[in-house]
Design a protein around this nucleic acid. Structure first.
Lengths: 175, 175
DNA sequence: AGGTTCGGTTCGGTGATTGAACCGAACTGC
DNA sequence: GCAGTTCGGTTCAATCACCGAACCGAACCT
């Protein structure tokens, strides 16, 4: 219950959205899902999020229809974005773009998203998650992401971070 | 300190953004700023947010360069979006659109945004805050908003809510 | 059997959020 | 000049969420 309470009386779609994705960690979990992270342990390794909190957030997202829990092997679960969840892409991208443009210092590991399946040759996404080459809003599955300048800081060295450092297509499971 | 902590070691612009706008209430405050709300008392009346929290959030947003505090009369302050703050529009719109499409029930007061200054005649914004008529991403100042179907619930009756219920242009101060 | 991985739950301690009370400066009515 | 109100806060105790560490059951490995 993040904002819950008296927000029933607010005629506001934003409040509804924040009740689902507005809690601490939630949007970072979803970002990783867009990047192809699917497993509980991988999310934990990459985010340093307490188990109990990750467990609760995943349950809430599944309950809200944003993620789907698949038991692809006994004892090995996968959390995958639903069609509803994929609709969060413009929001996730827009927030990340804001951080990239206004808050990331030099050496801060900027990330780009490129429309790989673009009929016009493709280009890095611009404001609103729009491809400047073809003018459309590409589905996350047709995007490639890569990291630009190497970070000045000592980077994380867990396996998930290493995977995410290499160029790859969104939504495809990590190797 | 919302997500602060060990996020320095994350090469992630989204984490940076969430450190500024990821705390409870912050995005709702900014939504109201886009709608033209500028005064401390108006934000309080509309959001039912505790004074101490609003005070702290405004200070943080001013500190982050998202809002500017103007003392337009002694004892009457105004908080206005900076150019940096205006860059949050695609994120705010995208989250609100997600809530509108997937979480708002019937009678839930849907809100539309129309490109009033559109050379192609204008239309309601589509995904990514893009105007479908001219294909651009309009600045918030060239947008008009209005509420569709009346809400089924008992609506709020404070002065700010009444103002926001009438069609108006974004960023223009409330009457 | 013994050990490991996975996806959790439980627990005490810490930190943030809440609502109510209080406060000083400025304007309003008279 | 004085009472009352508005505005934008701060302070405070109680509550709630988050944190990190420990524990747990099921499945697999050897």
């Amino acid at each position: 219950m993040p904002l819950g309470q008296n927000y029933d009386r607010q005629d506001c779609a934003l409040a509804r959205a924040l009740e689902v994705v507005g809690e601490r960690w939630t949007l970072l979990v979803l970002r990783d899902c867009f990047f192809g992270v699917r497993r509980f342990a991988d999310l934990r390794a990459h985010l340093d999020i307490p188990r109990a909190v990750l467990s609760e957030r995943l349950a809430m997202l599944v309950d809200a229809g944003v993620l789907e829990r698949r038991n692809y092997a006994p004892g090995r679960d996968e959390y995958v974005l639903t069609d509803t969840g994929l609709d969060l892409w413009p929001a996730v991208f827009s927030l990340a773009r804001f951080g990239d443009r206004h808050l990331v210092g030099p050496g801060g590991g900027r990330r780009r998203f490129r429309h790989a399946d673009c009929p016009a040759g493709g280009a890095d996404l611009a404001a609103g998650a729009v491809c400047p080459a073809c003018g459309t809003l590409p589905a996350p599955s047709s995007l490639e992401t890569r990291l630009l300048d190497g970070t000045g800081q000592t980077p994380r060295d867990d396996a998930v971070s290493l995977s995410l450092r290499r160029p790859h297509r969104l939504l495809t499971p990590l190797p």
